[in-house]
Design a protein around this nucleic acid. Sequence first.
DNA 1: TTTT
DNA 2: TTTT
Lengths: 145, 145, 145, 145
Amino acid sequence: MSLNKVQLIGNVGKDPDVRYLDNGVAVAAFPLATTERGYTLANGTQVPERTEWHNIVLWRGLAETAEKYVHKGDKLYIEGKIRSRSYDDQNGIKRYVVEIFGDNMEMLTPRPVAGGQPQQAASQPQPSAPVQPARQADAAEDLPF
Amino acid sequence: MSLNKVQLIGNVGKDPDVRYLDNGVAVAAFPLATTERGYTLANGTQVPERTEWHNIVLWRGLAETAEKYVHKGDKLYIEGKIRSRSYDDQNGIKRYVVEIFGDNMEMLTPRPVAGGQPQQAASQPQPSAPVQPARQADAAEDLPF
Amino acid sequence: MSLNKVQLIGNVGKDPDVRYLDNGVAVAAFPLATTERGYTLANGTQVPERTEWHNIVLWRGLAETAEKYVHKGDKLYIEGKIRSRSYDDQNGIKRYVVEIFGDNMEMLTPRPVAGGQPQQAASQPQPSAPVQPARQADAAEDLPF
Amino acid sequence: MSLNKVQLIGNVGKDPDVRYLDNGVAVAAFPLATTERGYTLANGTQVPERTEWHNIVLWRGLAETAEKYVHKGDKLYIEGKIRSRSYDDQNGIKRYVVEIFGDNMEMLTPRPVAGGQPQQAASQPQPSAPVQPARQADAAEDLPF
DNA sequence: TTTT
DNA sequence: TTTT
């Protein structure tokens, strides 16, 4: 009965910070910037360009993919959900942070072809483990209708 | 490097047609209507309301949930992807159809409480198998940052 | 080159707080709850249900529609963007807040028919001003292809 | 009470076909390809890569932007709605086509800097008319809360 | 008919 | 802290 979905296309502000939990689960965090173009109102007021920074958090396979292939400056598509959490900062003050827990990622920065001359339509990394979580085998079946 | 995503909120046109493949996989199909409000153009032209019918196809657990809980007239949120396919009709003419393969569904029609008086925030069916595909256990972990 | 999009289906936590700027522009604010079902991990760990509260902000016509038709408990679809801002609280401490600036809203709570008996496909309020921002007149034209 | 939304990231199959209606309104049409990676099922079955072709239709300012800046091979983000229509083909047979009427577009192919040496983070065209439809002036205002 |  |  509920939907909490975020979709971002933006630029990575820093190389991902990737950590491994005791159980071996990878978690990656990095900032992603989305920028709205500035524009001029009917009354002549200039509304300047505005950048929003999003705290991206990825888990497991996506975190490992980010560790290998995502770098500062890259353009990414991230799909996920909004998650708030609080923590006590070093002064013992309760802080709130809003994060985007990503469950789908597409890398939009073309990569140069390894060993070849760079070209416009460069090949992307093809991780052996799929970037996306488990899919349904729907393409493998004929429809019974 | 690609995204193919559809999100619909609309009304179910017919009870789902659910079939089981030889390997036991369930597939459900039903039409879903989305309606745009009509409006009036600046020049006075009336643009009438318009209904679009979408061919929804669900697989596996979602198909089984639809078989149990989805009925004609229900309001649904469906998220999925666009899929085209062709088939030969009974006259041997090649036909094309566009379908929405759903991978997330939320039921938006309130259900009356079984055995109680209906109330505004009515309970939804709570299938023992989750409506959504596998999730990451991200809620179970503390962040290492 | 950027996308900042949020889509929520959830329940309104309080009646909207609607204010009018000096220039007559309406602004509405209210909390919206989205709830994830709890689930059980493969290792038996129970991940409890979890509710996320979103600070919704609407402007102009949408704010006026909210003032008239949105109430605590209602189910809404909200589409918009993530917006962070900081302010100084009453103790002079800088606080950060993340808001969802909505630019599309659909009301998902069926309304009883005025003066009639409630029915499944109940009518929604039909504000004279459209709920959505300006649309293109694309439905009024025949395609030249 | 309805939502009909499509979001695509894909590659343009042909230069846009742009026409002008008698009233001066521009309409652009072009195919966009989205490709799903192939994968291997648990039982060893290979599900091959699969490409879906979408018929994109843009109106007015977006059509004019496409005419100027969109070319075969470009990667685009397109947001819009699904629209079906029928027409009689040259043999008088009724044909159905499903189109995506786009209302938001982001160009994801980096452009070489005019007059400079190409670089990874190349500048995008900056049309004088904004790519997006009218926006609310929400960034220009302080919140009254 | 695109792209990786 | 990114990018155009």
